[in-house]
């Protein structure tokens, strides 16, 4: 077993580590890639062994063995015929796999539009008509056992969408829509991260995919798309938080469904309270981190687009945090 030096966090659990997520697939669009990887490693190890053995013979072998190796025949066999055979086989497999993984989209899958932004992810669940029925950010919910088509777009620079346990990566390019399928075969949280250098805090641009049992997912979607918001829990700070959200400027950039807050520049906060992470997959989501993020996110994720709100008092921050925690 791999030695652990850390206790794993929720974010860490989701985002990777041991076993390597590439080799630990959780869906049919990642399974063959893991299989391919293992075969490739095996072949590579074999070839390396052959080369090193040949080199060993060339350097230290007996005169007879060396003589057999020391001619053009060795080149023809080792350098031409052997690679030609192995590579042909690999190429056939690789190309077929490419073909099957890029097979045309059927059209009846659930669709989600994911837009890469500097440095977070805008998520819109699309209805049958292609219109967005639900907005969210940085956390993608999918049902287990069925393919989900992602329409990948970018609002600014090139990003790349990558959830290693569910699929390979695909770039999000301004002016283009790239289609990608993911599918999870078991409920769970799967981490992802931007894989294309997108400037500044590219390192801190993560997200999570949460897979639910189909009925749970249906319930979740139904609750969220329903017009009425669940009642907010009673808390003395709640009203002030709500008011601050409007007056302190939050609403100019953020949206909370069912309230007057309709900003679209920043992530949608309608369901912030349920999210696993804060700041696009980098912080745990709790009241303290919320306060810290609101108060001065620049100290946490330098260069991100949210200004520091250092003029808010701790009471204000707490009120806002309480209010946002209640958004479920």
């Amino acid at each position: 077993m791999w030695p652990r030096i850390s206790t794993r966090s929720a974010v860490g659990d989701a985002l990777g580590g041991w076993p390597p997520p590439v080799l630990d697939p959780a869906g049919p669009y990642a399974d063959p890639l893991a299989m391919l990887s293992w075969v490739l490693f095996a072949i590579a190890a074999l070839v390396l062994l052959v080369v090193v053995a040949a080199l060993w013979v060339a350097l230290f072998g007996s005169a007879r063995r060396k003589g057999r190796l020391g001619g053009t025949r060795a080149i023809w066999i080792g350098g031409v015929a052997f690679p030609a055979v192995v590579l042909s086989a690999l190429l056939v497999w690789g190309l077929s796999l490419t073909g099957s993984l890029t097979a045309p989209i059927r059209g009846d899958e659930m669709r989600v539009k994911v837009t890469g932004e500097m440095w977070w992810w805008r998520i819109a669940y699309l209805g049958r008509d292609g219109q967005a029925v639900l907005h969210d950010a940085n956390e993608l919910h999918i049902p287990v056992g069925q393919p989900v088509v992602l329409e990948l777009e970018s609002a600014d620079v090139i990003h790349s969408f990558w959830v290693p346990r569910l699929s390979g990566k695909l770039d999000m390019i301004p002016g283009r829509t790239n289609m990608m399928r993911i599918q999870a075969d078991e409920p769970g949280v799967f981490g992802g991260q931007c894989a294309e250098y997108c400037g500044g805090p590219h390192a801190l641009m993560g997200f999570v995919v949460v897979a639910h049992e189909p009925e749970d997912f249906a319930r979740l979607m139904a609750a969220r798309t329903a017009g009425a918001r669940p009642p907010l829990p009673a808390h003395p700070d709640l009203a002030r938080g709500a008011q601050l959200f409007q007056t302190a400027g939050c609403a100019a950039c953020h949206r909370i469904a069912g309230t007057g807050a309709n900003g679209i520049a920043g992530p949608d906060l309608s369901f912030l309270g349920t999210r696993q992470t804060l700041g696009a997959g980098i912080l745990p989501n709790n009241r303290g981190t919320l306060m810290g993020w609101i108060g001065n996110s620049q100290a946490i994720k330098p260069g991100n687009r949210m200004p520091p709100y250092s003029m808010l008092s701790s009471d204000d921050l707490r009120a806002l945090a309480v209010y946002l925690e209640a958004q479920r």
């Binding site: 590579l87 190429l91 056939v92 190309l95 073909g99």
Partner: peptide
């Protein structure tokens, strides 16, 4: 020959 394969396999 390799270059022709994608036409068959993809």
């Amino acid at each position: 020959a390799w270059q022709g394969l994608p036409a068959l396999l993809i």
